[in-house]
Structure formats: C-alpha cells, structure tokens
Design a protein around this nucleic acid. Structure first.
Lengths: 239, 239
DNA sequence: ACTCGCCAAAGTGTCGACACTATGGACTCA
DNA sequence: TGAGTCCATAGTGTCGACACTTTGGCGAGT
C-alpha cells in the first residue's frame, strides 16, 4: 500500500482512490443509491455542480435511468454530508459555501488533526512514519515543479495516510466526511503564491516531529498547517 | 433559554429536548422518514433495541403503518449515524457496541471538547459562562441526592450548552452525532461508585477555568473529564 | 404598466407491486 | 444420527403510479 513509493503515482488514479476512500467511509448500502451518491458527491466537490444548482430527483432519475427511489436515498446521504440541502416539499439544491462555514470546518479539522498527531506519535511504527516521509518527498517534488494539482492530491494522500496511522477508524470516517466538504474550497488555498513553499516546509517539520516522537511539536505544526490553509483561503477573498 | 435556571427542570422533558437537539442536528428531510429515524434512534440509544436486534424494513413498515420507502430512508440515516448496519441484500440490524469503538469515540470526543473549550473561552460572554455555572449547580445537587439519572441528563445539558457557546454550528452537529453514539454506553460510566464526586469536582473546575478565561486549564479539565469517563467504562468490564 | 390571483406543469412524498435473493426447515441419503 | 440438498417463505432493491404541493407564467382588474 505504499502508493507514495510506487514510482510515479498517477495523479488521476490517486484522486479517484482518495475520493473513494473518503466516500466509502461508510460502506455497505444499496449499491445503486450509493453509486449515485458517489457520483453526485464527486461532481459537487469538484465544482461541476455549483452551489445553488438544483438537483431534483425527477431530473436525476431521468439522467441516471432509474426510478426516483435510489435517487432520493442518494440525496438524503448528500444532505447528511452537508453537500445538498433538501427543503421539505421543495426541490433540493447544492448547498452554498459560506466563509463562516468554511471557518467552522477548518476549526474542527484542526482539532481532529491534532488528535491524529497524538495518536500517530504513540501508535505508528518507524516504518509507517518512513512511509509518510515518502509522501512528503512527493510533495517536495511537486512544489519544485510548481505542479499545484499534483501537490494538492499528494497532500490529500499524506493526510489520509496520517489518518490511517492513527488506528482510529471512527476518526478516519469523520475526517473523510470533513474532507468531502473541504474539497469544495481547499484547492483554492494552495494556488496562492508562496503557499506551496510554506506547506512543504511544514510537512517536512511534521514528519521529523513524528520521527522524533515529539507530540507537542507535531501537533503545533499540524495545527499551523491547517490554520495557514484557512488564512490563505480567507485572504483569497473568494467568499 | 436558561433551562438550567428555570426552577426544577423536569428531567424527562430535558431528556427529550436533548435527544431532539442531537438528532435534529441535520434538519429538514421528509418528515415521515425523519420521524421514524428519530424514533428508532432513541430506541437504539436507550437500549430498547439492543445490539444485534434485527430491524428489517418489512416488519417496521407494518409496525409504523407505512410503506417501506420511508423506513428504508430512516435506516439509511441510522446507518450513517453508525447505529444500524445494513448489509447489502441482507436484513439490517442494530450495530454492536465494541470496546474498541467506544474507545475511538471517546478519543474523538475528547479532542472536539478541547476545541470547544478554546472556543468557549474566546467567544462566550460572562453571562453565558454564568449560565454554565447554573448547570453545574444542578449537577452538584444531583450528586448530593445521588440521583444518577438526573445527573446524567444534566450532564448532557451542560455539554450541550458548552457546545452552543462555541458558536460553531458544524461542531455542534458533529458532537451531536457523536453524542448519539455515546448515549448507548455513557450512562454506564456514571453509575460506578465515586464517579459522581469526581465528575462534579471536574465540572466545577471547568466552570472556574472558563470564568478565568484559562484555556489551558479548561482544556485539561475537559479532557480529564472525558478520559475519566472512558476509564470508568473500561473498568466496568461491560464490554 | 403593475399587482394579484389563478391554473397548468412539474416535483415531492408515499404507496403497492415485482423480480430477485437470502434463510431456515423439511427431506434425502449416508 | 448427522451432513447435504432443495424449496417455500420472507425480505431486499427497484420500479411506476398517485395524490398533494409548489412554481412560475398568464390574464384580469386596478
């Protein structure tokens, strides 16, 4: 599973896998409804279905060639993930992205990643931390090339790997759910000038802190990483 | 909204309101499905539907006098909340409660309440903190009377009030979702001897830390509160 | 020209039905 | 008696239909 070390990891494949892992967080479900849920979720977080866009079950049923039943189930799940708003008796639409909410999510994410740090420090093996270092090297490389897109997904990969190392499944699930929301605006924060360099440096410090089993430092760095992300977003004035 | 100060707050009413607030976290939805979801959720977290108990849509439809459609939607939501497992093509059943999972949830909860502390310290007004103190007094009273049930629900009330003071709606929602899971085993941890006294003392220290705007102390106390809860549960050997 | 009320068109929530699949008991055969 | 097979029962996932509600545009009245 050392995707990081497997030669040149195709970004597209990575992207797919990461969004899957995020969404599959809660496995099971009735296949069709869940497949539709995934499809719609991806389209929403990638911005192809913009905030406010109407997603009524009748249209979608025609579009997906199914009845409205599985569509409705998918919409319900999307609502739970905060991606869609389903007003009673009214047509559902893609939920808006307000700065206030973005801020809230960043706060939560920061807190949960602090927890991840603590757990990783006390539970991950040296090999696993070495694997994180591999991810970090990918980031370094992307930053040098200025490949923002690749950087973004490798970053997600890094975060994902960290979460796995926490050995806390519930935590992974919650983070995935948050990640879903984050994907809607997160790429904005990286495309800002200078962000990449800071981010790379932080990741490097983070990995080193892990290697040294330094909880305090790791938490601090992780937190600053998230915070910086938010600050950048805020300054971008996109909201 | 100072339920804490309104004379003798009826525990039953409080209970209802708190579970509601937890469940309504995600509002909207199609009334019937959501009502069923609430009903089932309450029954599960209160243990009337024990882990492993089968909850098939056909039976429930008969029981609720509806078709299976809204039932299925409710089950989907319950699955998302982790209260029910819906294996594909197989009958859904109430999810088991494993110690491992309990531990995971306590970890997350601890982390999120640390965040709550930080936010409360920097955002709550003095009056709001005073209101928390009122809740604390209720706890004190319950502890003196040895009224474990009342204590439990006032405790939930206290935690809820704290969450509200964080001024972070997403956080409240996530905590509610966690709380739902927690209710399944949390009452066990309080009924252990000596717990109440410790708990009361911690709450008192917490409120004082808030009043002093002492983030570090508040976080530490809050964390120890959660941790103590888990330890007690662990020692109870119920899992 | 502007507002108000009305009405067809379209969407929602719920239902009962259908094909398909898992389950558990009866029946067979050792 | 005990393991393996078969089948009826019962539940699942999906569908199309139906009554009710919202929507948005058209026309009447000021």
């Amino acid at each position: 599973m050392t995707a990081a070390t497997s030669g040149r990891s195709d970004v597209a494949r990575l992207r797919q896998e990461l969004l899957f892992s995020a969404l599959r967080g809660i496995e099971g479900s009735s296949s069709l409804a869940f497949a539709i849920f995934e499809e719609l979720a991806v389209n929403i977080v990638e911005g192809r279905l913009p905030p406010g866009h109407e997603v009524n079950s009748a249209d979608l049923a025609r579009q997906f060639n199914t009845s409205r039943t599985p569509i409705r189930e998918a919409l319900l799940l999307l609502e739970r993930e905060g991606l869609v708003i389903v007003p009673p008796r009214r047509r559902p639409y893609v939920s808006p992205v307000a700065l206030e909410q973005v801020k809230e999510i960043y706060e939560i994410r920061g807190s949960l990643y602090t927890l991840v740090c603590e757990l990783v420090v006390q539970r991950a093996t040296d090999e696993e931390i070495a694997a994180l270092a591999d991810w970090q090297k990918l980031l370094e490389h992307d930053a040098e090339c200025g490949d923002v897109d690749s950087y973004f997904w490798h970053n997600v990969g890094f975060r994902n790997a960290e979460a796995q190392l926490s050995r806390n499944q519930e935590l992974q699930r919650r983070l995935s759910s948050l990640g879903l929301q984050m994907h809607r605006f997160r790429h904005l924060s990286l495309s800002l000038p200078g962000r990449l360099k800071h981010s790379v440096a932080d990741h490097e410090r983070l990995v080193r802190a892990y290697a040294d089993r330094d909880v305090a430092l790791a938490s601090a760095v992780s937190r600053s990483l998230v915070l910086r992300g938010y600050r950048a977003l805020e300054r971008s004035g996109k909201f």
